[in-house]
Design a protein around this nucleic acid. Structure first.
Lengths: 218, 218
DNA sequence: AACGATTCTTGAACACGTTCAAAAGTGGAA
DNA sequence: TTCCACTTTTGAACGTGTTCAAGAATCGTT
């Protein structure tokens, strides 16, 4: 029965995510996951080809929650700065329970060969969903974002978000208040920086930045 | 005899670095390193507490070579753009032989608990040496960099260099020409961007960027 | 009901990084 | 030389992620 199979798979994922959160990535062994789920080690590998794939499960989960919370948080806000700020804080909120082990996750996620890598094929769906958050932020902003930026900005903001996540991993301050401060400071700065795009000298440099960003993309 | 001890240590490091370069990080096992060096596994652990510490050896080596090559390359160049460009290309040159396993290296380096992490205590010397490269670039530039930037710019450029290294790891283009292109494009853009600092509107935003960067540093 | 094919499950086995108690070597003092 | 403290070296053993041949359960067909 396909239902039973999906059920075992889901059980393993649930057990793994809970153990990752409670005892950390490295201390959560495949044997412990299997044992806790009441199946054999080999069976866990029947559903997940590697421990990394279980991390991928977490990545997708966190990403989905972020998309939902961000959409809600952004809904009533018009200005780009506020929208960006809200979406970033929503992301931090969702990741918070996993901060203790964020570093282990990042170390896994950064390997190009890992399915968890945000640029990998396996993560395409999650990445698109994450990109959509930032596209929505830009498209729904008023005053509107300069036309020539509207296409590239979402991807650049997403990259910035990856940077914030990296900063967050290393943030040892209480309740990650330094990361919160970074978000609170950077969001209005980015919005104000973009408004400078009208100044001729700035505009030229910006054009070159965008053109470089495009030419280097692939 | 202390000489013999140092000799074994050096032999292990040499063998490890060569194997990392030739067959990659994961495929180079501690058993293989020990065997190739003609000692036992346990003995390798007598000199290096972990496989990561051997990577640290490589990191220090690459860093020292970068410092030397960058100083030489930058010597005859006056303008910031050219100096920055030369230093970044020098870094890429030094890393090139290790590109195959750059990803595995980064995955190790990014873990806050790893000695190889560029922010770790074990890497302080290497980081300072790397920072000095960029301080030299800024201080020796003419036309001179705006005063208010001179203090923070080296560290920001160093962070940018870390970003370039990350980009390089993921760069699958032939001979990493996309990374080269990025450096060639970004260096003059940064220099031109800084020259905008004189425009009042830009200056204000810049002040806030610097102030945020400082407040968030620690 | 009975058969064959497919899906699911098992646990022993492998190679890895790492640890550690014990052995071997080394150098200086008596 | 003999002894002793210290440094260096050894290899078996542990727990880990992962593989795989074998078996059990399930399903569709007759």
């Amino acid at each position: 029965m396909a239902g039973k199979s999906k059920q075992t798979r889901q059980l393993l994922a649930d057990v793994a995510l809970r153990m990752f959160r409670d005892v950390g990535f490295e201390k959560t062994t495949m044997r412990a996951i299997a044992s806790e789920a009441g199946v054999s080690v080999g069976n866990a590998y029947y559903y997940f080809a590697s421990k990394d794939e279980l991390v991928q499960e977490l990545y997708v989960h966190v990403q989905a929650e972020h998309a939902a919370k961000a959409a809600e948080a952004v809904a009533g806000i018009k200005d780009l700065s506020g929208r960006l700020r809200a979406a970033l804080h929503a992301g931090l909120d969702v990741m918070e329970p996993y901060h203790r082990f964020g570093a282990e996750f990042i170390a896994t996620a950064i390997r190009p060969t890992s399915p968890v890598n945000p640029f990998s094929g396996e993560s395409t769906a999650a990445r698109q969903s994450s990109l959509a958050i930032f596209r929505n932020i830009v498209d729904g902003a008023s005053p509107a974002v300069p036309k020539k930026l509207r296409g590239d900005l979402p991807e650049l903001l997403w990259l910035g978000y990856m940077g914030v996540a990296l900063f967050w991993v290393y943030d040892t301050s209480e309740d990650r208040h330094r990361t919160r401060k970074l978000v609170d400071g950077a969001a209005p700065l980015i919005a104000r920086g973009l408004s400078l795009a009208r100044i001729p000298g700035v505009s030229k440099v910006l054009d070159d930045v965008l053109s470089l960003s495009r030419s280097v993309r692939d």
